[in-house]
Amino acid sequence: MRSILRFLLILLAIVFLSAFHIGLAFLLPFPWSKINIILTVLIVLMFWWDSGFIIWLSFFSHLIIELYTTAPFGILLTSGTLSILLSFWLYKYLFTNRSWYAAGALGLLTIFIYRAIYIMAILSLKFFGLTQILPWQNIMQTLSWELLFSVPAIALLFFIVSRFSRRLNTSLDHSALFKV
């Protein structure tokens, strides 16, 4: 029963995350609509859960997003999933400091990796003749706006969550060492 409930909660979280990403893309005016909500939330969750399960969350969220784009199926799914996987390894072995600036730096790298894989995927499809156009100008503009707005959003979200969460609050960890 508990595992069924857990499964349903996770499914709900995936749908909510994707719907939130879709909704904010509609509601927010340009350039705020360029914030990558999924990556923003996933990176903060990565620090929170400290678990590789985040990669599967990314997989299913981007699978839903794929249903609403005209890009060939698989591009967003591949770039979203692999970027979170690489980001998780960076989190485990490089960004071990739990702070808002570490979250921001990890977010910056994640978005770069995400768009790099996106470009490589489109280039591969172009090489095999499955797509004709690579909208370089659009991708570069999008990357610039995404970085400009998503990275501060990640840092801010981490900062806010860390104020209310014991897991992310490093000051509590330090104080615990000196408890008698």
Binding site: A25, T69, N138
Partner: peptide, 13 residues
């Protein structure tokens, strides 16, 4: 019922 999710596109659903 919706519009582009991928910021590199200008589409409607």
């Amino acid at each position: 019922i919706g519009k582009n999710i991928d910021p590199t596109e200008s589409t409607l659903i």
